[in-house]
Each structure stands twice: as C-alpha cells, then as structure tokens.
Design a protein around this nucleic acid. Structure first.
Lengths: 204, 204
DNA sequence: GATGGATTTGACCAACTGGTCAAACTCACG
DNA sequence: CGTGAGTTTGACCAGTTGGTCAAATCCATC
C-alpha cells in the first residue's frame, strides 16, 4: 500500500484508472458479480498491483462510493428556497435526468447496490441523504403551504423524481429495446416537464 | 434429472420449493451473487438434490423467470380499450403498485437482472413484452387522439408507471430509511392517483 | 413384501476468486 | 550514476463455487 503522504504522479494516475475501471465493472455486474481481475484488466494493471493501491475489493467499492455520492446529490442541493417554486422543481428534474444521461454507470452502481439491500451503502446514505432530503422536504412543504405549488406528499414527490429520472439509466436496456431506434432521451425531458407542470401548477 | 413424464407428487413439491427458494435468494443477491448452496439451504434440500431437479443454476434462474414473467405482465394485459380511459389507467397504476407491495421479490429479481443488462432475460422480454406494450400503446394513443386523456408520449407514460410503482419495491430499503416509521405504501396509492389524475385529466 | 424406478446424498473435482509475498524493476533525487 | 523508496508482478494459497457420480435410500406398484 502506498504511503499516505502527498500522492506521487503515478499514484494519482493509477488510483484514478482503478476507480474508473471499478465504476465500469461494478456498475455492470454489481459488487459480488465483479472480480478484481476484471477491474485489473479494465484498468490495464495487474491484480496484485490493484491490491497495492487498495487493500481489498471492498475498499475499492467504498472508495468509489464515497467519491461519487457527493456529486450524485449535487442536483438536489441546488434546489433554492428563494427561487420560483415550480421552476426550481422542474429544473431539478431536468438536472437529474441529465445525470441519468451523462452518468448512467453511476446510476446503475447505486441501483445495483440498493436493490440488493444496500449492505455497503446504507450508512453513507443515511448520513448524507437523510438530512438533505429533510431540508428540501421543508422547502417543498413551505411552497405547498403557501399555495405556490399543488398540495401533495413532499417525500413521495421527491421519490417520484428519482424514480422517473433514474429509470432511464437503470433500465436502459429495457427502455431502448422497447423504443427501437428512437433515443429515449429525445422525448424524456419534455415528457417529465409536462408531467410535473401539470401535476404541480396550482389551480388558479 | 427426473423424467419429463407427468411429474410425481415429490417432483411437484420439490420443484416448487426450489423455485420459491431461488426467488428468495436470486432477488436478494442477483444471479451471480446467489449460490446454489444458499438456494439449497433455503429450500431445505441438498445441493446435489437441486441439481437433480434442475440441470444448472442457470436453468433454475430461467425456469423462475419464465414462470414469473406472465404473472408480472398481467396487470398490463387487463387494460381495456373499452373502459373509461382515465379510470383504466388509474386502475392499472394501482394494480402495478399492489404488485410492488405484494411481490417485491419478483420486482427486485427483474430489477437486478435488467440493471445488469438483462443478459438472461432480454430474449424473454422482447418476446413477451414488446408486443404487449405496442398493443397498449395503441390504446393510449387512441384515447389521446379522441381527447379522452391529455396528450403525452404513450411509451414514456407507460415507462413512468413502471418506474414509479416499481421504485417502492426495488428501492425499498432507501425509501423506508427516508420515511422512518411511516409505511411508504400508506400514502403511495393516493400520491400516484393524484399525479396521474392531474397529468391526464383533459382540460375541459 | 418384492422390485425397479425415483429420489437423495457424501465425497469429490476443477475452475475461479480474493488476497499474499518475496523478488524484481523503475524512478526521483542527490 | 548510485541509491533507496516507490512500484510491479509471477507464483502461490486457501476458501468458495458449480457441478458430477456412484452408492444408498425411498416409494409406488404389483
């Protein structure tokens, strides 16, 4: 294992290559389904070399998670209590959808883990996600109480945004199989905008 | 492997026990993450005995899939072109939500497989699901053209129903972690009814 | 209650997997 | 350049896993 002094040029390059390869392999096969050898091959390194940089397969996984979770939650952090309620929500939906388009592997990494009970992620989630959701839930509830958007269950509203946007990344093969030539992401932005606009625009 | 004559009492019982155990284990760990030994223990049988009834782990998985897929698609088959459009869709949403509540393991089994690219399921899906979706899509498009429900992308509408309802089964641990004591399925039916009613009720 | 097919299993195997280690190699720096 | 820390790897190991097989046991039928 490399010393934890300031990382050398080589350390930086190899750690990055390993995490990139780990993302590729873990997101495609899940933790159990991925092998260290697969990751090594993908990274262009030998297996013992990987284990020189990370003490174990599990350490690669958790390092990857903690690196990604922050970025993953950023779109939600941007929801601004001072902004226009409906537009804030619609913009969040579009940011989240864009994440599914640009980072499908990250989405599938989380999906894989959560579907299987999130045994290696629940701690991180309850640490980072719980408070964030609570905060934004307050904002949504405030907007509803003020009549700025239609009344509905704030938590379920957030879940629905997650479900609808991540579906395009997590179930990509199914969606593409059923859509044939058409790119799902062509119509998705408008579909979701319409859905949430109709759902949330208060009856004047 | 038992003869494929009419199955004996014991064959019926053991095949059922194995498939039930396989559902439990595959849905929790995915195909690669599940071991034959786990399934055997869960079924109360020995490992060689499992392999007497199914030639391989893969055979157990595909047998399970083909047994479940039909039931899984039933709620969609019930959509009736002759019924009241909005009520037909709302009823479908509720049926699908009920499936997530009553059969979360089945939902997670499919989710696990599809997230990983559905290597063992894509054939079955494109055989059974493609035509069914196309048929119901026509019905939805007809309703929209007739002004019975609001205009929107029919395929994305169906995807949204799948995403929203299955989310409660597939991401169960996350949802429950964030909802604390409250049972997600208490408010979900009303939330989804409201969502689709607002989205689809045509502007009079 | 005998008998032959159906069922069950302990022992086993080869392949795979995560991880170790000592030896070899590379590279920044004086 | 020499040198020592940083990096890489071939060989290896122990545990796990899917699957086999011959022998043992069970059970429906006559």
């Amino acid at each position: 294992m490399p010393k934890d002094r300031s990382p050398t040029r080589i350390q930086k390059k190899n750690r990055a290559a390993i995490l990139e390869a780990a993302l590729e392999v873990f997101s495609a096969h899940g933790f159990r389904g991925a092998t260290v050898d697969q990751i090594a091959t993908q990274a262009g390194l030998s297996k013992p070399n990987l284990l020189y940089y990370f003490p174990s397969k599990e350490a690669m996984f958790t390092a990857l998670l903690s690196e990604l979770l922050d970025t993953w939650l950023d779109p939600m952090r941007e929801i601004d209590a001072a902004g226009d309620p409906l537009e804030e929500i619609l913009a969040y939906v579009q940011r989240k959808l864009q994440m599914s388009r640009d980072f499908p592997r990250e989405s599938r990494l989380f999906a894989n883990e959560i579907v299987q009970g999130a045994p290696r992620m629940l701690d991180a989630l309850s640490r980072d996600l719980r408070d964030l959701l609570e905060e934004k839930e307050q904002i949504l509830a405030g907007w509803m109480a003020a009549g700025k958007i239609n009344q509905t269950h704030p938590k379920h509203l957030v879940f629905s945004i997650w479900a609808l946007t991540q579906h395009y990344a997590d179930f990509d093969v199914q969606v593409r199989m059923l859509m044939g030539d058409e790119d799902p992401f062509d119509a998705a932005p408008e579909f979701l905008e319409t859905l949430y606009r109709r759902m949330l625009t208060p009856k004047s």
